[in-house]
């Protein structure tokens, strides 16, 4: 017996019929084809399936789709705007913060939520912020570099352009 839910996904409001047993990640991947969100462990541990639910980084394997009725969900597919990558995505590319890439969508989402709350983090704060996202390739070092670099990019562009034209 399905239940109708209305959920905004990457900015588009949609009404879908879901089974109560269906997990959010199953709705995203199997019903909507948003396969950028990965299932690593399906046991709430690895964080590969992390998406934003009402702005908070959430393991989409550990929330039912019906629980997102009325919510706003952002997946990795929703980070780029008008064909331009999100600063966190650009930083992951330039800092080589991935090898196999499986954990990357979840880490990007976690970093977006974290930097929204803490725009000028220390390295220690970054390391604690990504505790819920496992990466088996990188050893995390370049991920920390990327989050720091994204923070710098985002605070610089957020500032008023009073210094425009000044050589640095």
């Amino acid at each position: 017996m399905g239940q109708a839910i209305t959920v905004t996904i990457n900015g588009a409001k949609q009404t879908k019929d879901v089974e109560p047993t269906q997990l959010l990640v199953e709705l995203l991947r199997d019903t909507l084809g948003l396969t950028g969100t990965h299932v690593g462990c399906d046991t709430s541990q690895c964080g590969a399936c992390t998406v934003l639910v009402d702005g908070r980084a959430t393991k989409s394997c550990t929330i039912l789709a019906v629980q997102t009725d009325g919510a706003e969900v952002v997946t990795v597919e929703g980070l780029a705007k008008n064909g331009e990558l999100h600063p966190v995505q650009r930083a992951f590319a330039s800092e080589h913060a991935l090898q196999c890439g499986f954990c990357t969508p979840g880490l990007l989402i976690t970093a977006v939520d974290f930097l929204a709350r803490n725009p000028t983090p220390t390295d220690s704060e970054i390391r604690h912020a990504i505790e819920g996202n496992l990466c088996r390739c990188t050893g995390y070092h370049n991920i920390v570099n990327a989050v720091r670099s994204a923070a710098e990019m985002m605070t610089t562009t957020a500032q008023p352009k009073v210094a425009a034209g000044v050589k640095r």
Binding site: G47, T58, K59, T62
Partner: peptide
């Protein structure tokens, strides 16, 4: 508790 994602929910 757990990790930041667990603590958020």
């Amino acid at each position: 508790v757990g990790d930041p994602l667990v603590r958020a929910r």
